[in-house]
């Protein structure tokens, strides 16, 4: 019996461990009734039944795991560029980035490997920031309504467009707006059913064309009638040069 046990122990100890998975089932317990102290060098006191009653302090199996770091190995729209280190929840990182092969673990070797990426010449289809492509996508579908007064005289200026952008939920500073080649003056009801393009420069690098329409605003009897789904209706170009370009841009459906 004894020989058999020693034999088994020796074989188990020498054989390579088959389970490489780290066990996470640690339960940290605390004795409900602590053992009494015994004299130095003396015999420990006999343990009673109550000494085997425990309180659960922590179950490491259900403890929240910390975020893990991954490095992107390509440009991802709205997320980051190649070489960016992201800190993510483990499930999200594994399911969305590591499994599809969009990122690698941020191991010391990988960190060194992807550090040199920053110095590489940028690819042609790269952007000044990971969010630019998303912004461009939003601009391509946008029909910017510029509310101008129907009774007071005005000339269209960049701050009018900047304020109209802010009203429709876009932050565009005045310096980023490039006005159309012709000066637009009003009030002129012939402008009401026309559209034109302006150019917005994102991060002073990427340029985007935005479709604009002027609406003449007044209250009471002067108010223009409401047109249903006016943003879906195709309109005439105000500037003939832009007509072809406007026709190619899709309208929101």
């Amino acid at each position: 019996m004894l020989a058999l046990r020693s034999f088994l122990q020796s074989t188990v100890a020498t054989a390579p461990s088959l389970c490489h998975q780290q066990t996470r089932n640690t339960f940290i317990l605390k004795r409900k009734h602590p053992l009494p102290l015994h004299k130095k060098g003396g015999k420990p006191t006999k343990m009673r039944g109550r000494h085997f009653v425990y309180d659960l302090v922590e179950d490491t199996n259900i403890a929240k795991k910390p975020d893990i770091k991954v490095i992107l190995n390509q440009f991802i729209n709205g997320v980051g560029v190649k070489g960016d280190v992201l800190s993510l929840r483990p499930t999200q990182a594994y399911r969305d980035y590591l499994m599809p092969g969009l990122a690698v673990y941020a191991s010391p070797e990988n960190l060194v490997k992807y550090k040199s990426v920053e110095n590489e010449p940028k690819a042609e289809n790269s952007y000044s920031s990971p969010y630019v492509r998303r912004t461009l996508g939003r601009f391509s579908k946008l029909v910017l309504q510029i509310t101008m007064n129907k009774l007071q005289p005005w000339t269209l200026e960049p701050w009018h467009i900047s304020a109209s952008f802010r009203k429709s939920g876009f932050i565009v500073p005045e310096y980023a707006i490039e006005m159309p080649p012709v000066q637009i003056k009003g009030p002129d009801l012939s402008l009401q059913d026309k559209e034109f393009l302006i150019t917005v420069t994102i991060n002073k690098t990427e340029k985007a064309k935005v479709r604009c329409r002027i609406h003449h605003w007044a209250t009471g009897l002067d108010r223009l009638p409401w047109e249903e789904f006016h943003w879906k209706q195709p309109k005439e170009a105000l500037i003939p040069d832009q007509a072809a370009e406007l026709e190619n841009m899709p309208l929101p459906q």
Partner: peptide
């Protein structure tokens, strides 16, 4: 928080203005 200078506000937390700037806007 937005890092670009041109962006749709939808994806970012609201801009906190000073009272003076809000009135000017």
């Amino acid at each position: 928080l937005a890092k670009d200078d041109v962006y749709p506000l939808k994806y970012y937390s609201w801009i906190v203005y000073t009272a003076e700037d809000a009135v000017k806007a």
